Simulated assay, not measured.
Amino acid sequence: MRAALYPGGGRPIVIESLPNPRPGPDDLLIRVDRCGICGTDLSMTKGGMWDYGANVQFGHEYAGEIVELGSNVEGFRIGEKIAVLPSVACGNCRQCRAHGNNVLCQSSPSKAMVGFAELASVPATVATKLPSTLSLADGALIEPLAISLYGTKFASIAPGDRVLVLGGGTVALYAIYWARRLGAGRIVAMSRSARRKDLALAMGADAFVAYGEGEIGEVVEALGGPPQVVFEAVGAEGMLSKAITHADQFGRIVSLGFCTAPDPVIPAIASYKCVSMQFAVGYSMKEFVYIADQMDKGHVDPKAIVTNVIGLNELPDMFATLRGPNEETKVHVRCNAS
């Protein structure tokens, strides 16, 4: 099979021919149809402190069709469409018992971040069946939708809450999507440029504000008051401070951006506002199952953010494109297309 490999050390992605994987007794072998390129993939393959490692397969936003069942697998059939939760949990450690968040498991028995490949063997425990109403393109969006849903719930949005979302990428757009579905009042999206303004409005934002002088007043005017909830979904230095600056007194800030560099804040400013700040990563199987069941019942098609679909052989060039100025939002790779 063909698969994408990261050589390590920030070197370019390569497409290699590898032996076809074989499913273990508790695994499913799937033909991968779609795998989305995530901002994490870009940051974890640039050779910094946070890195996937050397000569590793990767790709974690994927869906495919079952082509073979492990000998112990029950409840699945060949030909069924599934989405994959790419973090495998042991189910027994303290983190698994307390939180059910697979990403927090400290004793993971195996990995399932192998989506940029024609075939993938994955534990049946991390497979979510797709209803007949959903396509495999829908399935490849469940993982980023789950990240935003899991994090958005930390804000405990009350009906009518004023919400500000910092950022215009996938996580930010889906934070808008969930905030709208969870009962937010007015929602403002804020980013450096208006390139994704239309997408933000389609996902459920009421207004768009660009960073710059007067942004605080513009946000207050658009929301009818300072935001009671702020989602930081940029992951760049200075964004936590910006979130604090915008938040109302006793506002709730949820960081979804996963910044990997120091991001200083001035505690006194936060203290005078009595704001609370929550950091979130990952998701549980509950989010995956819920999204698979509810995805076609939302106020907008989540596939609206997909701006390009490419073949696996085009992946290295697309990584280079996404590292510079570009017009893409979510790029999907058709792993069994040239």
Rank of each mutant, 00 (worst) to 15 (best):
N92K: 07
P302D: 11
G10E: 15
A146P: 02
V333I: 11
V300K: 08
F279K: 05
K111P: 04
V219Q: 07
G282W: 05
A98R: 13
I187M: 14
V114I: 12
P23Y: 09
V14M: 06
C38K: 10
R196D: 00
N72V: 12
C38G: 05
N55I: 01
H246G: 03
A304N: 06
T307K: 09
A146L: 03
A175Y: 00
F250G: 07
G257N: 01
L312T: 04
V88P: 08
G282N: 08
G91Q: 00
Q249N: 10
E118S: 11
A243S: 04
S156E: 15
S241N: 12
L149A: 02
V84S: 07
S71I: 12
T307F: 09
D206Q: 05
T45D: 09
L29Y: 06
A304T: 11
I310L: 11
L315E: 00
A158R: 15
M190L: 06
D138F: 08
I310R: 14
A222H: 05
P12F: 14
G224Y: 04
T170V: 14
A172H: 10
Q228V: 10
S110Q: 14
G47H: 11
F208Y: 08
V234L: 12
C335T: 03
L134F: 09
A140T: 03
T329D: 07
M277T: 04
I37S: 02
E314M: 12
Y6S: 08
R22W: 12
G36W: 02
C259D: 00
G168C: 03
V219E: 01
V56D: 01
A146W: 01
